[in-house]
Design a protein around this nucleic acid. Structure first.
Lengths: 243, 243
DNA sequence: TAGTGGTCTAGACCACCCT
DNA sequence: GGGTGGTCTAGACCACTAA
């Protein structure tokens, strides 16, 4: 492991264990460099990571300080913006089932061409799945994937985990993703499969998942029951790159 | 401006203007360093910024490449996760009005203590505002702020822009924020002020805004009309910091 | 004015990709 | 094996904070 990551990890542990307290100034970069037997640039890089992770902040000319509430963040090692399918997110002894409602191949419509940056002659998978958590209908997922990017999908794969197949079997590595969240009225499918009444709102999440190189891999529109899902995210204030 | 930012800006311009094309390999770091009269480390830092911004990706041993669709991102200089109040976000000749429905001082409840990390004896402002965009009711904002952190708020300030007052007059600098989005059924206020019917869903966004040092400044719950607001965000895949 | 963080350099070595 | 990115160092200078 890179040395700056080791240093970042060690400092994170110290924050977590209370060796460096909230609101407290931690040793200066020079001292840390000496302690870890490394250079100041490397220490700086480690502190930058912790800053992005929301654990510390620096004041030029003054020092580096532990943020309030930093401990909460230090506890959990998970990364914000992590891309895990629902299957992995369930955990906790809850039983997640998937029912494939529809599995077709067709040409994309205009919106799908736009989102996936493909020609309208490039065929796509059209997948509709119902997710059931602990016997309760949970979400309706409509997924569009260009066939060329993820060949040989079968109904059997969809019954297990599509993401496991893409990541594990095909060796695909996900990159960034863009999501848009709305509240919408339930449509016929929501009423039928999610058991929504007319008054039950739906949380609609549309997402485009990209590969490392920026190629759109998957366009999905997911309808969540309003009483089973909420979405959280953290905006980290960053340097104004670009003038 | 720091040299690495200048380099990042110049490369961004080249991507935007098409000098470096999508999917194309850009010159190696050594060449760029020579061209810009700087060191390779500085070029690397510039490329790291562009990578975080989603414009390029690197493959060790191979080179640095322009992402597909990078141009779209290069066009707009705005930052994801930017903290702008609605007043600034309106723009576009649309008329945004604010109506203060309620402006009180009281002690916080348990949830507010929890979110704002304050004692239950620390008084807070309790603000309810209706936002109106182009004569149409837009959102209902319920804002809780510890008095000690933002003193001397007046109804007059709320009629202008609270964020302008906090940032401009008080010189407060915002840090990170955490948001949670849900779809909920309209309550009595939503029906009255947002003109929601029983079937109109509401997009509820609860947010905690932090100061640079990690102190929670503001806890807000905003109800948006489902047909006027959607929320977008980008998850950037980052290095797995921490082992 | 002393302490501290931000940036930059020149050179070095390693890891990885590709032919 | 040559090309390229990832990391690291020692030293330097500047910018800012705090007393």
């Amino acid at each position: 492991m890179a040395k700056y990551k080791e240093v970042a990890n060690e400092i994170r542990k110290r924050i977590k264990s209370g060796i460096y307290h909230s609101e407290e100034k931690i040793p200066d970069q020079e001292s840390l460099a000496k302690e870890f037997g490394t250079s100041r640039v490397t220490v700086k890089k480690a502190l930058d990571m912790l800053s992005v992770a929301g654990l510390v902040y620096t004041i030029q000319g003054s020092g580096t300080y532990v943020k309030k509430n930093a401990v909460n963040l230090a506890e959990r090692n998970i990364q914000i913006g992590q891309n895990v399918g629902l299957t992995a997110a369930a955990g906790e002894r809850l039983e997640l089932k998937t029912k494939v409602l529809d599995f077709n191949v067709r040409f994309p419509d205009e919106e799908e061409c736009n989102q996936l940056s493909i020609m309208k002659e490039e065929p796509v998978y059209d997948i509709r799945r119902l997710r059931i958590l602990d016997e309760k209908p949970y979400s309706l997922e409509h997924t569009i994937i260009p066939i060329s990017l993820a060949p040989n999908i079968t109904k059997e794969i969809l019954n297990r985990s599509l993401y496991d197949y893409l990541q594990g079997d095909l060796g695909i590595v996900f990159g960034d993703n863009r999501q848009t969240v709305r509240a919408v009225k339930p449509d016929a499918n929501d009423k039928q499969y999610l058991h929504c009444s007319n008054e039950d709102p739906v949380l609609e999440v549309s997402k485009v998942m990209f590969l490392e190189r920026g190629t759109p891999l998957e366009y999905s529109i997911v309808h969540h029951r309003y009483d089973m899902v909420e979405m959280s995210f953290i905006n980290v204030s960053r340097d104004g790159l670009f003038g």
